[in-house]
């Protein structure tokens, strides 16, 4: 199963949720049921969106669309799945009309951009596409080396600038090289930046602009890397990054811990940004294509690993 790994990751966190859901099996009043669901949603980082979902749930019960509180979890699962989209036709990062397809990877510090770039490269290769990487994080000490190690492991060329170099210049050179080599995909890594730092956000806009000057329609894809352990700030991050660059999708990282990534739901619901990939480990192959139904189910389903009950 595609989502087995994600399910496993999510599984650990479902202990309390599963327990709460089991309580729903009994003869609970509407109020008790809603309270339980509220706790489940908040614990999953769904945040203030939970209140709206619960109001909707209550309305469903009142209107008779749902006959019994027992039906609420299933309804909620569908509702959650509807809140966040996956890639169109289940195919993330479709090739652009002309080569190279340019993907810009952005996000706050520590969200896991560089590791995600490595996984992305590996995935693209798996799709039979040739890749070139731009090491655009010229700020963090040794970030280029880190990406270099990954690229070496994946066997793809990497264009780098000196530490402290203008990332837009690196992007420029990489775009040139990608065109010259005729690769299918150019993946551009960038330095982590807090969305509140205006100058760094302006720098990002410049990188995006430069790419557009070199390759028509570039960047074709802008991936926002979101850390699943992040709480409600995820929405704020997405909003601000969206103001600077045309974010086309999210890459949800660190889903192999106990975090559920529920804040992504608000990002999907409010901003309509689809989630394209999830990261579920430290290896190159630890990436899954996002599926909303699976995600919602994994978020709410009772645990199925007996060893951890």
């Amino acid at each position: 199963m595609v989502f087995a790994r994600l399910r496993h990751g999510l599984g650990r966190t479902r202990n309390r949720i599963a327990h709460a859901l089991r309580r729903l099996g009994g003869d609970q009043s509407t109020e008790e049921t809603l309270e339980t669901l509220e706790e489940i949603l908040y614990t999953a980082d769904v945040g203030p969106l939970s209140e709206r979902l619960l109001e909707e749930a209550e309305a469903e019960l009142k209107s008779g669309a749902l006959a019994h509180p027992r039906e609420l979890p299933a309804w909620l699962e569908q509702r959650l799945a509807a809140a966040v989209r996956g890639p169109e036709d289940g195919r993330p990062l479709p090739p652009a009309e002309h080569r190279p397809t340019v993907t810009l990877v952005v996000g706050v510090n520590g969200s896991g951009k560089t590791t995600s770039v490595a996984k992305l490269v590996h995935w693209l290769q798996g799709q039979g596409r040739s890749v070139l990487v731009a090491a655009g994080d010229t700020f963090r000490a040794a970030a280029v080396e880190q990406l270099g190690v990954w690229c070496e492991r994946a066997g793809v060329p990497m264009v780098r600038g000196a530490e402290g170099a203008d990332p837009a210049a690196v992007a420029h050179d990489a775009a040139q090289a990608a065109k010259a080599r005729g690769v299918d995909d150019l993946v551009v890594d960038t330095a982590g930046r807090l969305h509140t730092q205006k100058n760094l956000m302006a720098e990002l806009e410049k990188v995006s602009r430069i790419l557009g000057r070199q390759v028509e329609g570039a960047p074709h894809h802008v991936l926002l890397v979101l850390d699943a352990t992040t709480g409600q700030n995820a929405l704020q991050q997405a909003r601000r990054f969206l103001e600077s660059v045309p974010v086309t999708g999210a890459f949800l990282t660190k889903l192999d811990g106990t975090a559920k990534g529920g804040a992504t739901l608000a990002v999907g619901e409010e901003l309509g940004i689809p989630v394209l990939f999830v990261g579920v480990g430290e290896g190159l192959e630890d990436l899954e294509v996002f599926d909303p139904a699976e995600f919602a189910a994994a978020l709410l389903a009772p645990r199925n690993e007996p060893a951890e009950t």
Binding site: A44, T229, T230, Q237, G257, K260, G262
Partner: peptide, 12 residues
């Protein structure tokens, strides 16, 4: 600890 951490802060 990252200030942006959500509910998971408790677990970790």
């Amino acid at each position: 600890l990252d200030a942006m951490t959500g509910q998971d802060a408790v677990e970790s």
